[in-house]
């Protein structure tokens, strides 16, 4: 283990311990925050009771649909924009400015258009994630070395085999970044929307628990969402490292 990693673990454990201590000793009141150990216990009870399985399933389904749509549409539109330089010239500044627009401001509009159900939040998650995928697909395709493409042509490789064995491997690290961002953004979009206004899901339950002064449930749910996102991100990161190592990059 690297010294920095060891030190990081020490710092994180110390931070959690400090929060635990200040909650237990009353420096932070129980109405503001419950101790981390209580959060874990409360989350365990919640999961065991099965009370929230519906909301968990609902949120994760919405995230998966938004994520799947964003990756598919993002990769395709990235490929199309890459193939048409003139379209690219117009699209580039728009893509660069995309994340400056708070996508959530469209949520009220989508609720009115699509109804107060799961579709508006999927739409927000999708819109949040799709641009990241498009931008990174473009970046990846830009990095495919022309020499490799020429070599492929010399070997008379068809479109499909060129894509599979030349373009995809070269663009993979960037596509991976796009996928990682797309996951994070679909979560932000879906949970954020549930939080603002919705009929169910984890974000809704957090908001409900907040208004109900039910700190035990609220903190347990927050811990659950953060845990899920962190685990997904870390596994992707580990997989990415394996891929990079196989290509001898790191």
């Amino acid at each position: 283990m690297k010294p920095a990693t060891r030190l990081r673990i020490v710092v994180l454990v110390a931070a959690v311990a400090a929060v635990e201590l200040s909650c237990r000793s009353g420096v932070i009141g129980a109405f503001t925050m419950i101790a981390p150990s209580q959060m874990v216990v409360s989350l365990w009870e919640l999961l065991a009771s099965g009370r929230l399985h519906n909301d968990i399933a609902r949120t994760l389904t919405a995230v998966c649909i938004a994520f799947g749509g964003a990756v598919t549409v993002g990769a395709l539109s990235g490929a199309v924009i890459h193939a048409l330089p003139r379209l690219r010239r117009t699209a580039d500044p728009l893509l660069a400015a995309y994340y400056s627009v708070p996508v959530f401001v469209f949520y009220p509009m989508f609720i009115v258009m699509l109804g107060l159900n799961d579709r508006p939040k999927i739409m927000i998650g999708f819109l949040y994630a799709v641009a990241a995928m498009t931008i990174n697909t473009l970046n990846g395709l830009d990095r495919v070395s022309p020499v490799l493409l020429k070599t492929a042509r010399m070997f008379r490789m068809g479109w499909a085999s060129t894509t599979l064995s030349v373009v995809l491997p070269s663009a993979a690290p960037y596509l991976f970044t796009g996928v990682k961002l797309a996951i994070a953004y679909s979560f932000i979009g879906v949970v954020g929307s549930e939080f603002i206004l919705s009929t169910g899901g984890l974000g809704y339950q957090i908001g409900f628990a907040y208004h109900d002064f039910n700190n035990k449930t609220m903190y347990a749910l927050i811990l659950f969402i953060l845990g899920v996102v962190l685990i997904v991100n870390m596994s992707l990161h580990a997989w990415e490292k394996v891929l990079m190592a196989r290509r001898g990059l790191q």
């Binding site: 994070a184 979560f187 932000i188 949970v191 954020g192 939080f195 974000g203 957090i206 908001g207 628990a209 907040y210 609220m218 749910l221 927050i222 969402i225 953060l226 996102v229 962190l230």
Partner: peptide, 8 residues
């Protein structure tokens, strides 16, 4: 992480 969840 979705920081919206931290808002409460």
């Amino acid at each position: 992480i979705p920081k919206v969840t931290l808002y409460p």
